[in-house]
């Protein structure tokens, strides 16, 4: 495993853990899209079906379980926790995320590496991950609430995307037959959408800063 891949995994892991820890500590999820968090939980659940069929490494297995556990915990907090659910911007988080799931599933049925259940689910999880940030982007544009979407979360997600792309480039040039078109293209789309998210975050952040200046 190269350093880019490892740093990508770590920043991805920390982005999820930071969010979970923050919700757990301040008992608030204001500014966080439940729709996006649910999509991420579905992404992990459908991608890691191979937990039951293939053993790759202890690292791999543990990371998968931690991703699954932490993303499901976030969803649980936002839906079920007495205090946390009160802070959820339900009326603003209106993106119809179910309409993302069906097109991704159809695309996965059409474009996959092999037409088997596992491969279709794997492709589906990649397509869904690419667009899962959209409800969060819409919520951020609506509420301009950047209190809970900390710089850390934005920074860690961005670092994860960047490191994974460097990892693919590195592996392409150092390994024989390392070609994953589906992963690369959906990864690029995800990074572009994330760039949009990044832009709005800093835009809101800058405007909030300005508002605090004396007139």
């Amino acid at each position: 495993m190269n350093m880019f891949r490892f740093l990508g995994d770590m920043t991805h892991l920390f982005s999820v853990l930071v969010l979970l820890l923050k919700i757990h500590t301040i008992k608030s999820c204001a500014g966080i899209s439940l729709k996006t968090q649910e999509l991420y939980a579905i992404v992990f659940a459908t991608r890691y079906l191979d937990l039951f069929t293939d053993y790759i490494s202890l690292y791999n297995t543990v990371m998968k379980l931690v991703y699954l556990g932490s993303s499901l915990s976030i969803v649980w907090y936002m839906r079920r926790h007495k205090l946390v659910r009160r802070s959820y911007d339900k009326d603003q988080d209106t993106f119809r995320h179910h309409f993302l799931i069906l097109p991704c599933l159809i695309l996965a049925l059409l474009i996959n590496e092999k037409f088997t259940f596992m491969e279709v689910m794997w492709a589906f999880s990649l397509y869904l991950e690419a667009v899962a940030i959209l409800p969060q982007l819409v919520l951020l544009q609506r509420t301009r609430n950047i209190d809970n979407l900390t710089g850390q979360y934005v920074f860690l997600l961005g670092a994860y995307r960047s490191f994974y792309i460097l990892n693919w480039i590195y592996r392409y040039f150092t390994e024989v037959h390392y070609v994953h078109w589906i992963t690369w293209i959906s990864g690029l789309v995800q990074t572009l959408l994330y760039g949009d998210f990044f832009y709005y975050y800093f835009h809101s952040w800058k405007n909030n800063e300005k508002l605090q200046l004396p007139a």
């Binding site: 995994d9 191979d50 490494s57 791999n60 991703y67 590496e113 092999k114 037959h177 070609v179 078109w181």
Partner: peptide
Amino acid sequence: SSSNDVKDEL
């Protein structure tokens, strides 16, 4: 398509 069957990335 891929010649790498093992999905070793997360």
